[in-house]
């Protein structure tokens, strides 16, 4: 049994909020640098270079890479042997409150979806909690911007739609998103489970570094194929045309019902942020 205090959790979450918003993960930064060099269409290559300069300027000046510092999506893997001293959810929200305040990050959360009053401190966090074996608490923070989130979609396909139907839906979603989600984008694709599970899988897929393929060779090949097809659409960086429409695509799957084939596509932008810590 290991004890972790609410204060430790708040401190860790606050630090993740600041770090995630100022420094992009190495896999995303490297993919952008490579795309800027490899992009064959000169105006698109110029655009990618400007976006790389922005990332460097943010790191240098301790500024958020993007002004949409997002909804704080927190993924917690809680070891069964851990005892939390205090209120876990309140501790996570306190961390978000401190991080977004001390880090001069934007407060982008409204308390009610229709009455829309800003909560003023970017709380509450969108918390996903998973119980795992062991005595550690792993916290991952994904500050999710809504330019890309708004272009995400979910479909309850029929089993007869099969692989072709899944591919068609992913490509249609990217085409419909067009210039809106700040391409080059990163895609999380959830296939299977239930209506809600597919959506959760697609968001969780964004946690996987884009240079790590799915461990199942069948899905690794599908990730590669879809990425190539997306990068043949011509949308390009910012939607101004070019090859680099997407930098990465990660698929996560779950068993599903005999009657269904749920597919969720969670779109993220070139400022895909994530940071993790283990307590």
């Amino acid at each position: 049994m290991k004890n972790i205090s609410a204060e430790e959790i708040s401190r860790a979450v606050a630090a993740l909020c600041v770090r995630a918003n100022r420094e992009l993960p190495p896999d995303i930064a490297q993919a952008m640098d490579r795309a800027a060099v490899g992009e064959p269409w000169p105006p698109a290559s110029d655009t990618l270079r400007i976006l790389c300069c922005n990332r460097q300027a943010a790191e240098r000046n301790c500024l958020p890479v993007c002004q949409d510092t997002g909804l704080a999506c927190v993924f917690a893997e809680l070891g069964q042997e851990v005892h939390i001293e205090g209120d876990f959810r309140a501790a996570v929200d306190e961390g978000v409150r401190r991080g977004y305040g001390e880090g001069f990050l934007r407060k982008s959360v409204v308390a009610d979806p229709l009455r829309r009053e800003n909560t003023g401190d970017n709380t509450p966090a969108m918390l996903s909690l998973e119980l795992v074996p062991g005595d550690a608490l792993r916290l991952s923070l994904v500050p999710k911007g809504f330019g890309s989130e708004n272009m995400s979609r979910l479909a309850m396909l029929k089993p007869s739609d099969g692989l072709a139907g899944v591919k068609r839906f992913v490509l249609e979603t990217v085409k419909a998103a067009g210039s809106n989600p700040c391409p080059p984008i990163i895609l999380g694709v959830g296939i299977g489970g239930s209506f809600d599970k597919a959506a959760a899988l697609s968001k969780h897929a964004l946690l996987r570094p884009i240079d790590q393929p799915n461990p199942d060779p069948f899905y690794a090949a599908l990730e590669k194929e879809l990425l190539n097809e997306i990068n043949s659409l011509g949308i390009g960086p910012q939607g101004f045309g070019g090859r680099t429409t997407a930098l990465g695509l990660s698929i996560e799957t779950a068993p599903t019902h005999v009657a269904g084939l749920p597919v969720a596509v969670n779109i993220s932008c070139h400022v895909t942020r994530r940071a993790s810590v283990t307590l």
């Binding site: 922005n54 500024l63 700040c182």
Partner: peptide, 28 residues
């Protein structure tokens, strides 16, 4: 069109900023 996701570079072009109204909207 401004460069989407280039917040740090765009902010550097702003010489002064003054609140006009609707402070209750926060960032908006």
């Amino acid at each position: 069109a401004a460069m989407g996701g280039a917040g740090a570079l765009m902010g550097a072009c702003v010489r002064s900023a003054r609140l006009v109204c609707w402070e209750d909207l926060g960032c908006e």
